[in-house]
Computed example of a mutant assay.
Amino acid sequence: MRKVDRQRLLKNLIQTHEIERQEDFVKLLQAEDIDVTQATISRDIKEMQLIKVPNADEGYHYSLPPEKKLDVKEKLRRILRDAYITHKQQDYFVVIKALPGNGTAIANLLDQMQLSGVFGTIGGDDTVLVICKSEENAKQFTKFIEDLLK
């Protein structure tokens, strides 16, 4: 099972069960025929930044961390400044080239921004394809990217 899928399951388990120990995660996953070790769960807990909060019965259970308000535009600006290589526009499309490993993050941030002229994005390892609603929207998006890079 992929890590992202396993962590999505852990998130769901936290929301539906009061899980007090790492072994509880292992047992619940094994009940779903998912073979996982306590060490793997421990790494997932650390990566997901899970916290323990008090139970009603004086114990503790795992919880998701409080949501942090992220300035998505600022995060996009930082990743572009660190990883940007080039961009090109053709018709309704804009292609952004970045350093390897950054394409999906850039596409995800663009999706989170829900820009009105953007129909959708496709993010690869080092490339993002931005599909705009019109050629004019593509020009506006290109300017938006150029402004972020200033």
Rank of each mutant, 00 (worst) to 15 (best):
M1Q: 14
D5W: 12
D5Y: 10
D5S: 10
D5C: 03
R6H: 01
Q7M: 12
N12H: 07
N12T: 11
Q15T: 08
Q15K: 05
E18N: 11
E20V: 14
R21A: 11
R21G: 14
Q22S: 09
D24I: 04
V26F: 08
V26L: 04
K27I: 02
K27L: 06
L29S: 10
A31N: 09
D33V: 12
I34R: 03
V36T: 09
V36C: 02
T37D: 03
T40E: 02
I41A: 05
R43L: 11
R43S: 06
R43C: 13
M48R: 11
L50W: 01
I51N: 03
P54Y: 03
A56R: 06
H61Q: 00
Y62C: 10
Y62F: 15
S63E: 04
S63L: 00
P66S: 07
L70I: 09
E74H: 08
L76V: 05
D82T: 13
I85Y: 03
H87I: 12
V94Q: 13
V95M: 11
A98L: 09
A107N: 11
L109W: 07
M113G: 07
Q114T: 07
V118R: 15
F119D: 14
F119N: 01
G120V: 15
I122A: 05
D125Q: 05
T127R: 14
V128A: 12
L129Q: 06
L129E: 13
V130K: 15
V130T: 11
I131L: 04
K133W: 05
E136V: 15
A138K: 10
K139E: 02
Q140E: 07
F141Q: 08
F144G: 14
D147E: 13
D147A: 04
D147V: 08
L148T: 15
L149W: 08
